[in-house]
């Protein structure tokens, strides 16, 4: 009986301490996010994020590491959704240029991809641009099914020292 009482007492103490840790952490978190030089809003609308929109459109998304692997496998075709000027200035090796606004000019090429089920990895500059997402959505609606969006884009490719053409 005495042992049970001691166990119960210990359990109560632990639960009280858990509550205290949770509370102190909350206090510190609020305090830190008030004075933090890189503080973030308490509530943020994530629905406009490119990733979120891609998820809604059921388009597969990969980060830099995933794109690097796909490029090394040499099976997927990389599609550069940036402007022709940006593409000329530098792009991922073997990538083809397909700016969103020039979609009509590449109709035949797209139909070829659709027929051959070619895997496409579409990218633009970084996580903020939506050219690659818009292009992916359009390609998907045209029947391209094997589609991946490289979310970190060309900026990360360059930053991490991958080869550029």
């Amino acid at each position: 009986m005495r042992r049970l009482a001691s166990h119960l007492h210990q359990m109560k103490t632990t639960i009280r301490q858990i509550g205290l840790i949770l509370f102190v952490s909350g206090f510190l978190a609020v305090l830190a996010n008030t004075v933090h030089p890189r503080k973030i809003p308490w509530v943020q609308d994530w629905s406009h994020q490119v990733e979120s929109r891609a998820k809604d459109l059921r388009i597969r998304v990969v980060p830099f590491s995933g794109a690097k692997k796909l490029h090394a496998d040499e099976e997927a075709l990389f599609v550069d959704a940036r402007s022709e000027t940006d593409y000329t200035a530098g792009h991922i090796p073997d990538a083809v240029s397909l700016p969103f606004e020039a979609l009509d000019e590449h109709f035949e090429q797209i139909m070829e991809w659709t027929d051959s089920d070619q895997e496409l990895v579409v990218y633009c500059s970084n996580r903020e641009c939506d050219d690659a997402l818009l292009l992916s959505a359009e390609l998907k609606s045209m029947g391209v099914s094997n589609l991946t969006l490289f979310i970190d884009g060309f900026d990360s490719w360059k930053t991490f020292g991958e080869a550029v053409e």
Binding site: L22, S25, G26, L28, A29, V30, N33, I40, W42, V43
Partner: peptide
């Protein structure tokens, strides 16, 4: 916060509070 969001497990309004709170909970522990 981006990492928390990428799990797509929490409703949007809880992503930032979780990203602010969890690291402090871990540090205090």
């Amino acid at each position: 916060a981006v990492s928390v969001y990428r799990f797509h497990l929490l409703p949007g309004f809880l992503v930032n509070p979780a990203a602010i709170y969890l690291p402090w909970l871990e540090a205090v522990c």
